[in-house]
């Protein structure tokens, strides 16, 4: 029960960075979303020891672990796009599957080649 309380409190505290991110977005007219500004600010606050890791660690861990939950409403919203589902739905899903396979494959191969080269240079 105590752990749940800590998580709730820390998730609330993380909202402070969301609001700061919103404020920063207001000042800087860059096409970067408030949450990314927030991410950057939280990183800076941790790095400059303005806040302690323990203040956010549990809450952040929970948010990241339950990330899929927050995507579910948007996934349900897909039914609003009958056009996609009825006309080209299957084609689009196949397109995305194939493209994602190529992306993951190329990224993994590139990373592994660079790592292998690094390793051989060291020996």
């Amino acid at each position: 029960m105590l752990k749940i309380g800590v998580i709730i409190l820390q998730v609330c505290f993380l909202h402070v960075f969301l609001f700061l991110g919103m404020a920063l977005k207001h000042i800087l007219p860059l096409p970067i979303p408030a949450s990314m500004f927030g991410l950057f600010l939280l990183f800076l606050a941790l790095y400059c020891k303005v806040i302690k890791l323990e203040w956010v660690e549990q809450g952040a861990k929970w948010l990241m672990a339950e990330l899929l939950l927050f995507f579910i409403p948007s996934a349900v919203g897909i039914v609003n796009y009958e056009q996609i589902i009825s006309i080209q739905g299957l084609e689009i899903v196949v397109l995305i599957a194939i493209s994602t396979m190529i992306v993951m494959g190329m990224t993994a191969i590139t990373a592994e080649r660079i790592l292998a080269r690094k390793r051989s240079e060291r020996h």
Binding site: L14, H15, S35, M36, L39, V56, E57, G59, A60
Partner: peptide, 8 residues
């Protein structure tokens, strides 16, 4: 907030 959490 979940995006922000990735700073950790």
């Amino acid at each position: 907030p979940a995006t922000i959490a990735f700073a950790v």
